[in-house]
Design a protein around this nucleic acid. Sequence first.
DNA 1: TTGTAATCATTCGAACTAGAACTATCACAG
DNA 2: CTGTGATAGTTCTAGTTCGAATGATTACAA
Lengths: 138, 138
Amino acid sequence: MASEQIDRDVCKLVHRLAHTLDVHVRRVADEMGLTPSQVVALRELSEPITARELAARMACEASNATFVLDRLEERGLLNRHPHPDDRRAKQIVLTAEGTRRRAEAVRLLGERSPVGALRADQQEALRELLSALDGQLG
Amino acid sequence: MASEQIDRDVCKLVHRLAHTLDVHVRRVADEMGLTPSQVVALRELSEPITARELAARMACEASNATFVLDRLEERGLLNRHPHPDDRRAKQIVLTAEGTRRRAEAVRLLGERSPVGALRADQQEALRELLSALDGQLG
DNA sequence: TTGTAATCATTCGAACTAGAACTATCACAG
DNA sequence: CTGTGATAGTTCTAGTTCGAATGATTACAA
C-alpha cells in the first residue's frame, strides 16, 4: 500500500526535522550558557503561566517542567508565586534578568533558523498542514 | 515581522508533532516489551548496515547507536559481523527472531499512526514539504 | 455536607542521550 | 612507503527524560 509508505516517510522526516531544530536550539543554548530545555522554557514563558501549562507548551511531562524550573529559579531567572485562584498551582513569573534573557533567546532562535531554508509560501503551507494535523490530534 | 511568527509556529508544531509520534512509538514499544529506541532501530534495520548508518537513520549520536545495539544484541535480535570491506566497521545483521520482531514493529507502527489523521493528499503534500526542507538542510 | 474522583506540583528511580576521549583502521598526499 | 588527517566503533560521564507514587487542593455528585 502506497499510503503506508507515505506514513513512514512523514514520520521519519518529522523525526529528522525535529532533530535538526533540536541541534539549532542546542547551539543557541551553548551560546547563552544554558541547556536546550531551559531555552525552550524561556521561549514559552511569554507571560505568567502555571507549571502544567509550561509542560503542555514544551510537550513534556510535568515532572520535567519542575526540573527545568528548578534550574531557572536557581539562576534567578524566575520565581514561583502562589496562584491567585488555585492554591494547588503556582504562577511562574520571570524576573527582570529572566525577561532580558528571554528576549535574547527569542532573538537568537530566530536567527539562522533551519525553517528559513524554505520559501515563504512553503513555510506558510507547512504551517497550515502541521496546524491541521495538530488540531485533529487534539 | 510576519515571517518570524511563521518560523516560530512551525518550530513549535514540529516539536509537538514529533512528541506525538514519540508517544505513539512508546505505546508500540510497551506493547512489545522494548524501549522506544529499540523499536526505531528495528524499523531502520531493513537491511544489513553499519552502526554509523543506523545512527544517521535514527538521527542520533553514534555512541547512542552502540548503546541500543548492545541491548538488541543481548536480546538475541541481531549480531555484529565484521564488515567485508572495512575492518573498522561492523555489519549489523538481524537474527531470525530479530526479523520477526521487526516485522511486528513495522506492523504496529503503521496501525493507528497519528499521521493518518490527515487526508491522503495532505499527507502527500506534507511529505513533499518536509522532503524539500530535508534536502536543503543536507 | 460529604465523599469520591480529578488536578497541581513535587520527588524519586530507572532509563536514555549527547559529547568528549580513546583505539583501531582507512585514505591519500608527498 | 610514510605519516597526517579522517573515520568506525566503543567507553565513560553528566545531564535530561519519563513514569509512578505522594501530598495538597479542587470539583462535583449524592
